[in-house]
Design a protein around this nucleic acid. Sequence first.
DNA 1: TTGCATAGCATACAAATGTATGCTATAGTT
DNA 2: AACTATAGCATACATTTGTATGCTATGCAA
Lengths: 221, 221
Amino acid sequence: MTPKTPPGQTRHRVYHFVRKRLLEGRPPTVREVQAAFGFRSVQTARAHLETLVSEGKLIKEASKARGYRLPEVGQLPAPALVPLLGQVQAGTLTTAVEDPEGYVAVQYRHGQETLFALRVRGRSMTGAGILPGDVVIVRQQPSADPGDIVVAMVDDEATVKRLRVRKNRVELHPENPHFKPIVPETGDLVLLGKVIEVRRYLENIPALAFIHGGHADLFAG
Amino acid sequence: MTPKTPPGQTRHRVYHFVRKRLLEGRPPTVREVQAAFGFRSVQTARAHLETLVSEGKLIKEASKARGYRLPEVGQLPAPALVPLLGQVQAGTLTTAVEDPEGYVAVQYRHGQETLFALRVRGRSMTGAGILPGDVVIVRQQPSADPGDIVVAMVDDEATVKRLRVRKNRVELHPENPHFKPIVPETGDLVLLGKVIEVRRYLENIPALAFIHGGHADLFAG
DNA sequence: TTGCATAGCATACAAATGTATGCTATAGTT
DNA sequence: AACTATAGCATACATTTGTATGCTATGCAA
């Protein structure tokens, strides 16, 4: 007979196995748990799983294949992949979205909002801690509040600036004394969206998920 | 009979349904696809899925329940949740890890490395674009190279600085003229790890996944 | 027209997978 | 010793779920 392990010990490892698999997006079957731990009976694995459920460490969809889940408080928002756009220049945003440089994972999604990411060029926002090469996560929206850091089309190119209102006019302010504010003609400002997150990768290129050719798109649903 | 839709149209929607579910970590069954689109036959759903596989837009584990997958180039590293630590002060890092403020999703994981996240306090690194309130992602490691931005224990508190070597001694340099470099006594430096990513959340609190009490831990596997 | 491809339906079957029942063994407790 | 709890095993069964086969209908091109 297989030696018995101290109480709880094995179950703890089972929990971590299941958790790992769930975070990988590949919920295990009872028999996969069995195999992973070398149990000679399915029921041994199942007993551990059911105990974990009764302890509240797992939840499950009964009678469903691969039905065990993590009991996140609230609900862990699905990590969404948002397109990382390279050059956003002439044309609409939509065209740029069709050929992204890659994808970046973000962990929130409120409702139906449309997100995308941009790599920052130039030093015009260093005063706000946004350096060249940084990646900004942008929520597409047609307007913004004064003080927001926004992405707007200026001279057929996307630029990151802080939105200000001076003398009843909208202005785009850099955060760098070497740069001058942009004062677009009224009605001439095309706002792409608001910057909601800034990221800087200090090591190698992050895992940009290059989704299979041409079939990934702006993830808004 | 149910009206036929134009070629490819429905399949495109099926793809997105499956993709969404996979990104949520809940792979669908063929019959769930069927139900989601109101097909009256399982086979209709399956035909679409198999076509998507033959087109290379999906891959599958044959004969397995919920076996459809996204065909990421290489392999999309599982988004890992790393603990966001609040106050790292006295004691070892391990003790701080046991009571994290929350969890942050990162999208890479090379092998067995141990990651954690810290919220930055103070303005000593503003010159490097690291502002108070920013979140730094740290890879735990016992040594680092000159020029790296590191997290080290100084006076029983974790601090973020740039590692320099002056006169054959290791120094911790702030990036702010108002702060002075720290020159620890030889052998007195406790390096927690290297900063590999900087994040700034400009809106509300990010989705910190508060995993069910006490059972989440440092995710290194 | 004929032929062919695609979208969809209906039904049956087989494999994967969850579930139930009863058993043995070890350790601790009364 | 008797009782109880936990870990594990073996086997059978039921449900879920993937798979196969054959059919109808529509649109398009030769």
